[in-house]
Amino acid sequence: MRYLLRRLSHALFLLAGVSILAFLFTALAPGTYFDEMRLNPQIAPETVTALRAQYGFDKPLPVRYASWLRSVIHGEMGFSFAYNGPVAPLLLVRARNTLLLTITATLLAWGIALPLGVWSADRLGRLPDRLLSWATAGLLVIPDLAVALGLLVLAVRSGWFPTGGMASVDFETLSPFNKLRDLALHMILPVTALVLSSLPLLVRHVRAAVADVLNAPFLLAAVGHGIRKRTLLYRYALPAAANPLISLFGFSIGVLLSGSLLIEVVMSWPGLGPLLLEAVLARDLYVVVGGILGSTLFLVGGNLLADLLLYWADPRIRTESGAR
């Protein structure tokens, strides 16, 4: 329990620090959203000054941070100048789209990586294992950008999949079943890109972790008892190899919001990525800070989850932290 509290307070501390840091970085940036207006002869300089004052840009930084904090507590997370509304609902819609994509991709990637890694570790050093190692190394060195663009080129030339966005033009008129089908079709490309970019790392880690325990005496004993190979691998070896994998899983959870930024932009998926890019270009300060904070929340939460899972799965950690 004390372990949990310590981890939690640590996470809160991190979040507060990140919010200050993100706020500092973006607020120190030269130029604000209203600077473009100054160049427009149809807008009087007084109007711009009044707007700046209205949104508090004439106040010192700590005051702005404090008022921003207050709006976070009210669930608004500041004000978006470009969208002329509070940031939180804006982020929520986009985050939902991003999560739809990344959760699917993460589940798929782990679903493939676990059996593949175990299978490979079981044949360690033999031909199938070596082939798989080469394949994962190959995937690992192709940049995400190249994977995503390559998929797009393939899709465009074959015409099999829609190449951008989240829904067809006539989405609203479709029946519920066809809506689902349309959505799934649009998800195929970005999900494939995400799976391909995270799969090699996962497979390699699963393989290394399982291979590490396969020579353990208790597994030899289990073989001697005549336990079936599948039971052996999945019921005996995999739990023993779980520790590093749990940390990795926590990381997978952590990057759910931030990991797909580039692929969303390339595939024009209406998630957080394109929103954030626009916000950076338009200097829409609070959207940027909100995006950073949201994805940090996930990173910290993922680490926390991994810690908890480890605590639950590994008795050594329990006794160690209990003794402290």
Binding site: L14, F25, T26, V280, T296, N303
Partner: peptide, 14 residues
Amino acid sequence: ALPWLYLLFALRAF
């Protein structure tokens, strides 16, 4: 703890 691509963006926005 900062998501580093976002951090890169924020720093670039700076």
